[in-house]
C-alpha cells in the first residue's frame, strides 16, 4: 500500500465565536494535483494552514508526506513548499536574496543554493529581474518569485493558496504551465486552492468543493460535472415557477433541478436536452409559467460549484 501524500480526517477549527472548519476529510494521492474549490470564507485557507503546520486543528488529525502535522510538524515542514494567499515578500531584498535566505533557512549548502536558484529562475522566467529589488516587480513577477521560493527546497508536496489571484491571463497561463511541468517531470504533488473554475479544470486531477467548513463534493472535474446530469436546460420565466419546478422534478428524464434565487433562472439537468426541450416548454405552459428565455448548455464545473455551494453571497 502506498502512503497518501495528504490525508486529513475530520478536521475542525473553532474559534470563540466562529467555526472555520467542521469535520473536513480529504485524501490526496502522491503525484496528484488536487484543487480545493470553495466560496470566500468556506475554509480553504484554514485547511491549508492546518496542513502546512501554521495552525493546530481544534479536532481531527492530518498527515502530510506520512507525518502528523501536529506531532511531527518539523518533519512535515522539511518536505513541503508553500505559497500564501497574500504576497509575502520583503520589498527591500532582491529576488536572489529572497531565494538564498530561504535556502539558508532550510540549511541548503552554498553550491546547492546557487544551482537551485539558477534552475528556478529559468523555470519562472525571472532571469532579467532576479538581481533587482522586489519593490520594482509587478504582481505577476512577485507570484512567480514566490512559486520559485516554494520550490527552492525541492519539496515533495507543494501547497499553493490561490496562486493566480489577481494575475493577468499571460501570467496565469504561465503559472499553470510551471505547475504542470513540475507535476509531470518531477512527480510533485500539488494541493492548491482557487475559486477560478477554469484553473481547477486546467490543472487538477481531482477537485474537492468545500463550503461552510466541510467537504460537499469531491471527484474528478469531469466526474463532478457528470454527477449533475449529462445536459442542462436553463429556463427563465415568470408566473407560477414554484408549481412548475414541483411538477418537472417528478419527470423521469429529469435528474436534478436548481433554482437561482436572485435571478429566478431554473436549471434543469436532463438526460438529453434537445429531445426534452419541447417537453419542458409544454410543461411550463400547462403549469402557469410564462417562458421568457430558454437555452441549452452542457454543465460546466462552474455549474457544479454553484449547485453544491448555492448562490448566496458570502461574507468572508
Amino acid at each position: 500500500m502506498t502512503t497518501l501524500a495528504i490525508e486529513a480526517h475530520n478536521l475542525g477549527k473553532h474559534y470563540k465565536e466562529t467555526t472555520a472548519l467542521s469535520d473536513l476529510s480529504l485524501q490526496v494521492e502522491p503525484q496528484q494535483i488536487y484543487a480545493l474549490l470553495g466560496p470566500n470564507g468556506a475554509g480553504k485557507t484554514t485547511t491549508l494552514s492546518i496542513l502546512t503546520t501554521l495552525l493546530p486543528p481544534s479536532s481531527g488529525t492530518a498527515r502530510v508526506a506520512g507525518f502528523d502535522v501536529v506531532q511531527q510538524a518539523h518533519e512535515v515542514r522539511r518536505r513541503i513548499g508553500v505559497t500564501f494567499q497574500e504576497i509575502v515578500l520583503d520589498r527591500d531584498l532582491t529576488g536572489r536574496q529572497v531565494l538564498d535566505i530561504h535556502g539558508q533557512l532550510y540549511r541548503l549548502g552554498k553550491a546547492e543554493r546557487t544551482r537551485r536558484i539558477s534552475e528556478l529562475v529559468t523555470l519562472v522566467q525571472l532571469e532579467d529581474a532576479i538581481d533587482r529589488d522586489i519593490k520594482t516587480y509587478s504582481g505577476g513577477m512577485k507570484r512567480r518569485l514566490e512559486l520559485a521560493r516554494g520550490l527552492m527546497t525541492n519539496p515533495e508536496i507543494l501547497f499553493l493558496d490561490e496562486p493566480t489571484q489577481g494575475l493577468d491571463p499571460q501570467n496565469r497561463v504561465g503559472i499553470w504551465d510551471y505547475i504542470r511541468t513540475l507535476n509531470r517531470e518531477h512527480n510533485l504533488t500539488v494541493l492548491l486552492t482557487t475559486h477560478y473554475m477554469e484553473e481547477a479544470e486546467a490543472l487538477a486531477h481531482r477537485v474537492g468543493i468545500i463550503d461552510h467548513g466541510t467537504m460537499v463534493a469531491e471527484g474528478t472535474p469531469a466526474g463532478l460535472v457528470a454527477s449533475l446530469g449529462t445536459e442542462l436546460i436553463r429556463v427563465q420565466g415568470s408566473g407560477d415557477t414554484a408549481h412548475f419546478i414541483k411538477t418537472i422534478t417528478t419527470m423521469p428524464f429529469v435528474l436534478r433541478v436548481d433554482q437561482d434565487q436572485q435571478q429566478g433562472a431554473i436549471q434543469i439537468y436532463v438526460d438529453n436536452s434537445t429531445r426534452r426541450l419541447l417537453d419542458v416548454v409544454q410543461m411550463a405552459g400547462s403549469n402557469g409559467m410564462r417562458v421568457d428565455d430558454i437555452s441549452i448548455a452542457r454543465p460546466t464545473l462552474g455549474d457544479a460549484f454553484l449547485h453544491y455551494t448555492g448562490r448566496g453571497l458570502r461574507d468572508a
Binding site: T52, T53, H102
Partner: peptide
C-alpha cells in the same frame, strides 16, 4: 502583519 513571519513558520526551524 504583512505575513512574512509565515515564511519562517512553515520552515523547519
Amino acid at each position: 502583519l504583512r505575513g512574512i513571519t509565515k515564511e519562517y513558520l512553515v520552515a523547519p526551524i
